[in-house]
Design a protein around this nucleic acid. Structure first.
Length: 402
RNA sequence: GGGGAGAUACCGAAGUGGCCAAACGGGACGGACUGUAAAUCCGUUGGCUCAGCCUUCAGAGGUUCGAAUCCUCUUCUCCCCA
């Protein structure tokens, strides 16, 4: 058990919270836990429907970590059963159902990434899968569970409501999700369930079902949404996410491409810094603050050394306009070829049309010199480092024959 | 089972016989500037052997000199009624 008093713990938890149902219940349960020396069972579920976990997903995981540090028991629930049905959240389209193999693969990848934040030691964390109980359920059990919900109640859910308004499809099995998620809480006898901002409804369902089963209803905690680099909700579909397993340089760069306004949120939700320190940083120069933010994010995932290296590389490349250290080398089969073809062949542009645009807009450099001639023919050297080609500020390659 | 509405490029959304490779907004990309891959401004945003050509507006046919636009069938979605 940690040294924090229940009140201190509550304050730390609330700092990362958007909704808390209810604060009184949580306080009481923290007090009882402290008295009896019992760990609270804190559930967080994640459906292994795709492979990348991003910084937005990390917010509830950080909160889970906080509970762990406060001496409670995180229960990481892999929704392998729910994942196999397809995931209705996020986008308005349902995701295709996955095979068991895909689910297993995703689950393994998830654990790797989550392990960067949470201590997965079995003594400190319970790892469960909801196929444990859903795998055993027969159709009649399922119907009984479905009977616990009503259409009107389900339509209260924001996501469903919106789709109704936009005349978008809602599939029948999607109605199962809140119920399944709620049933997970029953089976796990959760004291607390965490989730993103959009999960509040599903979390409530857990309370409801637990009450009906004669359990103490869980406390629902949602974390604020971390916005993506473009200010919209962070999502892989928008391409505005920062993947937890991304290249350090890429993660660092993505954080640097953030606007100034969202920095405060990012500091609070994506780093482990204290409020006072964050305020001090934000009071300084925005450029320095963002650099610190990027450093903290990378360091939090990969450690201080990696973060230092990423910071140095970034400064060199963008402030001092130096070449990056690791420029990919590409070998092409032709002796000579026109510039647009070369850019495409080297993988610097997806099409020759795109390549031509880049050239015309002055975004292409050959050995450091801007080249605007579309018809420029280049002969590739067979030896040595090759021709240095640069497209925009971020794409580099050394090209030679091979 | 009946009636109605709809499917447009990465996303949202115009267009309803030629002036449409398709307005506009977002995103993305390039350039300038800078405090950074911030902000702002300018530009680009189907492909190609690129002043020309080729393939796109859910899919398949058809009408027409000419179709994203009209007709038929198919697939999918939404609404109303039963």
């Amino acid at each position: 058990m940690s040294q924090a008093t229940p009140d201190q713990a509550l304050a730390q938890i609330k700092r990362l919270c958007s909704d808390l149902v209810t604060e009184d219940e949580l306080r009481k349960r923290l007090e009882i836990s402290a008295e009896k020396g019992e760990r609270l069972r804190v559930k967080f579920g994640i459906d292994p429907t795709f492979t990348d976990v991003h910084l937005g997903h990390a917010v509830p995981i950080r909160l889970l970590r906080l509970f762990q540090d406060l001496g409670h028991l995180p229960i990481l629930l892999l929704g392998d059963a729910t994942a196999r049905l397809g995931d209705p959240t996020g986008r308005n389209d349902q995701r295709p159902p996955l095979t068991q193999e895909e689910v297993e693969h995703n689950a393994a990848t998830y654990l790797d990434q989550i392990g960067q934040i949470l201590d997965l030691d079995p003594a400190r964390c319970e790892l469960r899968r909801n196929s444990e109980w859903f795998g055993e359920m027969d159709f009649f059990d399922a119907l009984r569970l479905l009977g616990r919900g009503t259409v009107a109640r389900l339509l209260e859910r924001d996501d469903f409501r919106k789709r109704m308004d936009q005349n978008l499809p809602i599939h029948l099995h999607e109605m199962m999700y809140p119920l399944m998620q709620g049933w997970d809480s029953v089976m796990l006898e959760a004291d607390v369930e965490l989730g993103g901002n959009d999960q509040l409804f599903n979390l409530h369902m857990g309370r409801l079902l637990q009450e009906r089963e004669g359990q103490r209803p869980q406390i629902c905690l949602t974390t604020p949404l971390l916005l993506g680099t473009d200010g919209r909700k962070m999502s892989k579909t928008y391409g505005n996410h920062v993947p937890l397993n991304g290249e350090p340089a890429d993660v660092y760069g993505k954080v640097m491409s953030l606007g100034d306004e969202p920095m405060a949120d990012w500091f609070r939700l994506a780093t482990g810094l204290e409020d006072a320190e964050i305020d001090a940083i934000l009071a300084g120069h925005p450029r320095e603050a963002k650099g610190r933010l990027a450093w903290e994010v990378v360091a939090g995932l990969q450690g201080a050394e990696v973060a230092d290296a990423a910071a140095t590389a970034f400064t060199n490349q963008f402030k001092h306009k130096q070449l990056p250290d690791d420029i990919p080398e590409v070998g092409l089969e032709q002796d000579t070829l026109a510039l647009p073809q070369l850019l495409k062949g080297a993988g610097l542009c997806p099409s020759t049309s795109e390549a031509r645009r880049m050239i015309q807009q002055g975004g292409v450099r050959i050995d450091g010199e801007v080249e605007k001639d579309l018809g420029r023919e280049l002969s590739l050297p067979t030896e040595g480092e090759g021709i240095l080609i640069q497209v925009g500020k971020r794409k580099f390659a050394r090209v030679r024959r091979g």
